[in-house]
Design a protein around this nucleic acid. Sequence first.
DNA 1: ACGTCAGTCTAACAAACGATAGGTTGACGG
DNA 2: CCGTCAACCTATCGTTTGTTAGACTGACGT
Lengths: 208, 208
Amino acid sequence: MARSTGRMRKDSERGSDAGAAERRKQILTEAGKLFAARGFEGASMREIAAATGLLSGSLYYHFASKEELFVAVYDANIRMVSEAVRRAIEGVEGAWARLEAAAIAHCETLLTGDRTAVLDVKFPPSLLGVRPRLIQSRDEHDRLFDSLIEPLELPDDINRNLFRLHVLGALNSAVIWYRPSSHMSPADVARHVIGVLRYVRKGNTPAT
Amino acid sequence: MARSTGRMRKDSERGSDAGAAERRKQILTEAGKLFAARGFEGASMREIAAATGLLSGSLYYHFASKEELFVAVYDANIRMVSEAVRRAIEGVEGAWARLEAAAIAHCETLLTGDRTAVLDVKFPPSLLGVRPRLIQSRDEHDRLFDSLIEPLELPDDINRNLFRLHVLGALNSAVIWYRPSSHMSPADVARHVIGVLRYVRKGNTPAT
DNA sequence: ACGTCAGTCTAACAAACGATAGGTTGACGG
DNA sequence: CCGTCAACCTATCGTTTGTTAGACTGACGT
């Protein structure tokens, strides 16, 4: 059963180990998919290990516990989305154009590839110990959107905090229903959400 | 250990057994809370049984399996929300007023009491067998909202299907972040969501 | 008074779970 | 060539999981 055992570093960068970091990323990726699909308790360490090409015990070399692994996955995913958003709004002018660019990047990162994100998770009590850390990760991303919403000229009866929750709620809900099809891309979804919200501007009057 | 054993019917309605139906409702309620809090795999049959005042084996007298129990819970919850919405819009005039009444009822049922709802669940593969039935339940409620959105006079660039997903996404996302506090009720949340969307009307022009 | 039967408990099953301890491998520096 | 150590495997632990079979209990109709 010649599983690839031992270390396989070939030309190898010296000094610090990059082989371990590589594996860590693989595990993070596979665990991300499984956590997103099955939830925290639904995904088992054995499944995650198997998906990475490892055995369950080997995971504990890289992560101290299942909780710790989840935190790492969640953190990596938020950072991923956050950086994609930051990259997307770089150099874009106009408050609404910036928000739209952010929404598109946010949506694309969430919906493309392997549904690797776990943003919409309602944390189970099993994660109560690490909950603060998870919330903090999410908060950073929330602040980023706050900074995009702040310059918008919204009507006075709009609460900017609830507005942010509204935007992210509408965007994130797509992970539930979205299936990649020919006639709608993740960007289309994001554009429509922002397209709707563009009507919420200072000059306009609400329907009665 | 005098657990209440046997049956306890007192004055008892004759004919069909109403004691069993009562228990069923209890189980549905407790299971609803636990499924909502911990997810499908996170909530165990033993916990559910204990919360109802039973032992795990006794659940199988009322429900054939955990899957079946989940389907029943999900179905009951959707029906609950749906009926609350139907009751709320009864006699209300005006397309937007009707949608707002619906949103309030939807939100209140979701957020009050014991967070008993499981609308936002992304079904794990463990539920693949019963997935069609779950989706069908959700679809009925979706059609109800469709009928409320249809009479709205929306700008031509708005896709009514995406608009419904937008509304429900924004509303449902509240179950993640909402905590009952003094200065905001579930109805306030719903009103704000609809308040935002009221700006999306035919006469208005979007921000650029 | 008696049999029936709904409803619950008891006790147990195999399987899967997270986690651990210790052995094995092979690339590396000296 | 040898010792070191990162990276992985093996085997196993105790617990919990969903589920089942069968015994029990007490209210009911007759």
